[in-house]
Simulated scan of single mutants.
Amino acid sequence: MADPVVLIAHLGGAAGVWRPVLDELPPSLTTFTYDRPGLGGAPPRPAPNPPMSYNAFAGELAAQLPAGRVVLVGHSFGALIARAFAGRYPERVAGFVSVDGSIPQMKLQLDGEPVVDGGTELDLITGHVEILTAPIPDVPAVVLVRRRDWWSTGKPPHPAIDDLWQAHQRILAQQWRAPLIVAERSGHHIPTDQPALVAYAIELVASGRQEPDEARLAKLGGAVAQR
């Protein structure tokens, strides 16, 4: 039996955002989605609610999971929680799928306000150090990245940010010894725009494989990036 699949949503995202992907997965896979405190049906964290690093978010997730190994699937900010989890609990990781994962220290809002998830501020500096120093387990992995020049609404990001984002995905794929797959019909929200492609990446990793079938990828709107 395949290891359970844990799906971790983007910044401010509740568990329900994974429904399109869940609908594409085979029923033989056991899946786990959850609401972080202050999101969906989960109550907020009690006061004083200090800023949290990625390791702290990973610790919260670990406390909700049964013993044993899991396949981690994280979108955007959720991919950073998955990477922190893998660093803290490498023996519990059976596989890793990054879905357009965020850059650890990148401020995701440009209005001067702190970055907040479910009412809790992110400690970006501490979290960045945690990700930089986290060990990477030797497990099957896939890295998905959005199409270049697309963001979440079809509006292109600043070219320099786009270049940095794409470079980060290439480096991440190299670190995890994973194929880098481009979602050619999607902006940042790949789980919504191309859920079948995300489901295929999960199936690959959950089965213990990671090299995709390029013909099937093409039908799903994906392609292996040239390194």
Rank of each mutant, 00 (worst) to 15 (best):
M1C: 04
M1L: 10
D3Q: 13
V6Q: 05
V6N: 04
G12N: 02
G16S: 14
W18I: 13
R19I: 13
P20E: 15
D23Q: 15
D23I: 02
E24K: 15
P26H: 11
S28Q: 12
T30F: 12
T33H: 15
T33P: 09
P37I: 12
G38D: 15
G40D: 13
P43T: 10
P44V: 01
P46Y: 07
A47S: 14
P51N: 04
Y54S: 00
Y54R: 03
A56I: 04
A56C: 01
A56T: 12
A56G: 10
A58W: 02
G59A: 08
L61S: 05
L65R: 11
G68Y: 07
R69G: 03
L72Y: 08
V73W: 12
H75I: 11
A79M: 06
L80I: 10
I81E: 15
I81M: 14
G87M: 05
R88K: 09
Y89D: 13
Y89T: 13
Y89P: 03
P90M: 06
V93D: 03
V99R: 03
G101P: 05
M106F: 15
K107W: 03
Q109N: 15
Q109E: 11
L110M: 06
D111Y: 02
D111T: 01
G112S: 09
D117K: 06
G119C: 12
T120R: 07
L122N: 04
L124M: 10
G127Y: 02
G127S: 02
E130L: 09
E130W: 09
I131S: 02
A134I: 00
A134R: 07
A134P: 00
V139G: 03
V139S: 08
R146S: 07
R148V: 06
W150S: 10
T153M: 03
G154S: 01
P157A: 11
H158S: 13
D163E: 09
L164H: 02
L164A: 12
Q166E: 08
Q166F: 11
A167Y: 00
A173N: 04
Q174H: 13
W176T: 08
W176R: 13
V182D: 00
E184S: 12
S186M: 04
P191K: 08
P191S: 11
T192N: 11
D193S: 08
Q194W: 02
P195E: 12
A196G: 02
V198A: 05
A199D: 03
Y200C: 01
I202P: 06
A206Y: 10
S207T: 10
Q210T: 02
E214K: 08
A215H: 00
A215F: 08
G222E: 00
R227V: 09
R227K: 14
